[in-house]
Write a protein that binds this DNA or RNA. Structure first.
Lengths: 209, 209
DNA sequence: CAGATTATTGATCACTTGATCAATAGCAGT
DNA sequence: ACTGCTATTGATCAAGTGATCAATAATCTG
């Protein structure tokens, strides 16, 4: 059980740009399935159906590939959530949609990616930069939702910058907790919802069920 | 640069129980300095000043050693914080002490241990169990502080179970964020303090400065 | 002091990681 | 059909991981 190389039909020869894209996408698939820590030279190569040397050929280094993979996954997630949330017109319903979307477990595969990222970020500077960037964008998106609600008069004026940080901290903390099966039975939505209702002058239960 | 074995004076022969304790402590030192992911057979051996085989001899397996190491660090941290917090008699001041203690950066070395733990917990069942246990104890400690405040009439009655989960989520989330240098300038204490003041009927600024 | 007990080690295994490089194979243009 | 360009690969490296085991050395016991 120790074949020095993968036996596999030789990969079809395609333009470099296209192959780079395939490898890039394979890395994302691996990250979503096995976590960011599972994005190894050989795992990505197998997923893409090419020799591991080809992955090394297209990626500057694995640490950069990991960082780029994280950036792609986090960026796409934000774009999707943003589009989904902004489609809701009523400000309060929009905020509720934001919370439910981020907590309903639909994105159960990207949470491990974030948790892995925080841990790996300490030894991977490229990844640390990527994390900071994505977090800034998430923060801006939450602020946008809050500001819209306040400007529409549906929420009490508040320090949206601070509240957005709070929301993200709670969501990331809860997601990390749930990853190790620490549910405590309490509904995460209700937990965050209550806090925001108080800070934004909303009636009890408006954000949670 | 490839000595097959560490050249080093042979470790003095001491009773097994004592040596086990030394290795156990060496693992904790390594974890605090290089993170839980740095707790490897050879790193612990070097730290303890023994051959790597001896670490393997005393530890059932590395995954168990990592789990035990986490348990020891998290447990000791909780005991210390608890003692420090319970020494404060005034309920509100006690809560404030709890928050400042958990956020003032004094325990900057154990935060990475927690963050590593969440990531590694997915592949290390022993570690996952340890995490859940330690979190349960932390939760109970926070509830204790909140209940005391409410019973003393210093805080508005509330669902302390839920609020404790919220506090832990925010703290862990914020700590994770700060680990990748994502400070956003905002004071974490003020952020959590504001939220709790609202939920516990405390005057603005009572918990934060 | 001789012998049994046990703590400690060196060597080694099988495996995984990222990375490099000469060699090969396929396509494009002439 | 030939030639040049380039995508792709196999082999291999050095480093690091956890783990095992016979051999050694120190202590204790009778």
């Amino acid at each position: 059980m120790s074949t020095p190389q993968d036996d596999r039909p030789r990969a079809e020869r395609i333009p470099a740009a296209l192959r780079a894209e395939q490898i890039y996408e394979a890395a994302q698939e691996v990250a979503l399935e096995r976590g960011l820590a599972g994005v190894t030279l050989r795992a990505v190569a197998e997923r893409a159906g090419v020799a591991s040397a080809l992955v090394a050929h297209y990626a500057p280094s694995m640490s950069e590939l990991v960082a780029d993979t994280f950036r792609a996954i986090a960026g796409r997630e934000l774009a999707e959530v943003r589009a989904h949330v902004l489609a809701v017109r009523d400000p309060v319903a929009r905020l509720r949609t934001l919370l439910t979307t981020m907590l309903d477990g639909t994105r159960n595969d990207v949470t491990p990616v974030w948790v892995d990222a925080w841990g790996l970020g300490r030894r991977n500077p490229d990844l640390a930069d990527a994390i900071a960037e994505e977090m800034t964008e998430w923060h801006a998106a939450v602020v946008e939702v809050l500001d819209a609600g306040i400007n529409a008069g549906a929420m009490t004026p508040a320090d949206t910058d601070l509240i957005a940080s709070q929301v993200l901290a709670m969501i990331d903390g809860l997601n990390a907790h749930e990853m190790v099966d620490y549910g405590r039975g309490a509904s995460s939505l209700r937990l965050i919802g209550r806090a925001l209702e108080l800070e934004l002058g909303l009636a009890d239960g408006t954000l949670g069920q």
